[in-house]
Amino acid sequence: MSRLVILTLGLAVCFFYLPIVVLGIFSFNAASTMAFPLSGFTLSWYADLFGNEAFLGGFVTSFLIAQPVGLLGALIGLMAALAVTSPRMRLRAAFAILVLVPFLVPKTVLSIAQAMLMSWVGLGRGATALILAQTLVVIPFTTTILAAVMVRLDPRLEEAARDLGATPWQSFRRVLLPQLSVALSAAYSIGVILSLADLTISMFLAGRTQPLSLIVASEFRRELKPDLNAMQVAVLVLTALIVALTEINRRRRLRGRLAHVRDDL
């Protein structure tokens, strides 16, 4: 690797992580205003966090909403990816564009359109509406992840299973699904993470439900306090934890498979 490559990537990492690092620093800074120079080390902002019932309540709500979004997103993404990678798929391009619609239409416009339609036909907004709308926005991501893995699988394995008399369901359950388990967990994680991160959809469809991002946004408009830093760092650490666990899982499976291959040789 040349020095230029290292320099470019180093600068890119600095740009991507600069705001995140600054947030982290201020969450340990012993001053109620966020200004340089730093005043000293404290954990009190984290202590405050655990006493703040609005934050904790919002966190529980966000977490409970994120779970079904992750599961539904992975399941629907699996169906969409199975279809789009199937050799017998007709209208493949049209279907792919349809799957990408929720990603490409501005979220504000989509959410307001959904809110208008729902209130016109008399459906109430709330947790259910929020879960469904977030699931739709997650589908492009989960489908892409799963389809990217599926196109790399060896189709002969499935054909062999079918030749040996397996029903489509059996060959799916015994041959395809085990190869997809890592991608499925990645899809679920993406769904959970995007749901936790969402603000725009919540603004229009949450109704009386108050996920964390809405509570933070309303605090944000009023004033900036360092306990918000601590809050954000906590959310970030949780996100990083989900990403890390998904990756560790992927590596362990990969190593397991390699070990298998070695044993067979």
Binding site: P19, V22, L23
Partner: peptide
């Protein structure tokens, strides 16, 4: 994966008149 609001908030801390 960080929320919109987290990013916006972090940049306010970086770019504010007493920011980084």
């Amino acid at each position: 994966y960080t929320g919109e609001i987290v990013r916006i908030y972090a940049w306010r801390v970086v770019l504010g008149s007493e920011g980084l």
